[in-house]
Design a protein around this nucleic acid. Structure first.
Length: 251
DNA sequence: CCATTAAACACCC
DNA sequence: GGGTGTTTAATGG
């Protein structure tokens, strides 16, 4: 097991300690406390396709992505899976679970070889109870997450397929939640479909439309975003009539 | 009808 | 061998 983790951390570009010290909330802590957090935080390697977290298991740590990309997956009883969002390097997740149920409500699957930082529950609770600056960070984080989720519900209910793919991809660039997302997103078309709740071939059509519109480039096992504002505001033609049907039905 | 999708294909990294 | 692009038949609004 440790062999795998060591193999994944090839040249180890960023140590856990460097990662924690470089996090946006590190500045909210006094130096002694930050040092203690660094000592208590453990690193874990997760190979592509491996689980960082499994649904219905106890949540014992707050998790930051040092390197790689992980997907937060919901699964239905019949075995289908849907990706709620993907967390890239620099992102943190699980604070809501640690503060409430303390049982994971989703799977977290590495979409490629990843390294994660695990802040133990006890450490997280100490920060929560003793540092107001950390609380400010958490409020911002929860607010950003809520905002993202409201957007996602809107995508599902109001948008057509092409536009939904565009917005779901754009949502991965939320700077508050995912501070260091590069323009290349290493997700295959199956995974993008899972994000937008679409089949693979419909996703492929949508991506081709977006590429034709000059908003992104389709790569092998991923896409490169060329025009992020364009993706955020994209409105396909075929969708507009579906939206019209929903607008002012009585008038 | 029209759009979507699962299944099955043929490429090609 | 898995990711991609495309076709076909089946399905559902």
């Amino acid at each position: 097991m440790n062999r795998a983790a060591a193999a994944i951390a090839r040249p180890a570009p960023v140590s856990v300690e460097e990662f924690v010290r470089g996090s946006s909330w590190a500045g909210e802590l006094p130096s002694g406390e930050l040092e203690r957090v660094c000592e208590e935080t453990r690193e874990r390697g997760v190979p592509a396709g491996g689980y960082a977290v499994r649904t219905a298991t106890p949540a014992t740590c707050w998790i930051g992505v040092i390197e790689g990309l992980v997907k937060l997956n919901l699964s239905s009883p019949d075995g289908r899976e849907s990706t709620v969002t993907a967390v890239s390097a620099g992102g943190w997740f699980g604070e809501g679970t640690l503060m409430k149920a303390k049982v994971w409500r989703y799977d977290v699957v590495a979409s490629r070889d990843s390294r994660i930082a695990c802040v133990p529950l006890a450490t997280f609770e100490r920060l929560l109870h003793t540092h107001i600056g950390f609380n400010h960070f958490l409020l911002g984080q929860l607010n950003a997450r809520l905002s993202l989720m409201i957007s996602l519900v809107g995508f599902d209910r109001l948008l057509g397929a092409d536009t939904r793919v565009a917005r779901c991809l754009a949502s991965l660039f939320d700077t508050a939640l995912y501070p260091r997302t590069g323009l290349f997103i290493e997700l295959n078309q199956n995974e993008i479909g899972s994000l937008a709740a679409l089949s693979r071939q419909r996703t492929n059509q949508a991506l081709q439309a977006l590429e034709k519109a000059g908003l992104l480039r389709i790569e092998f096992c991923g896409i490169t975003v060329l025009d992020l504002p364009g993706l955020q505001h994209y409105q396909g033609e075929s969708e507009s009539r579906q939206v019209l049907k929903l607008r002012n039905p009585a008038h």
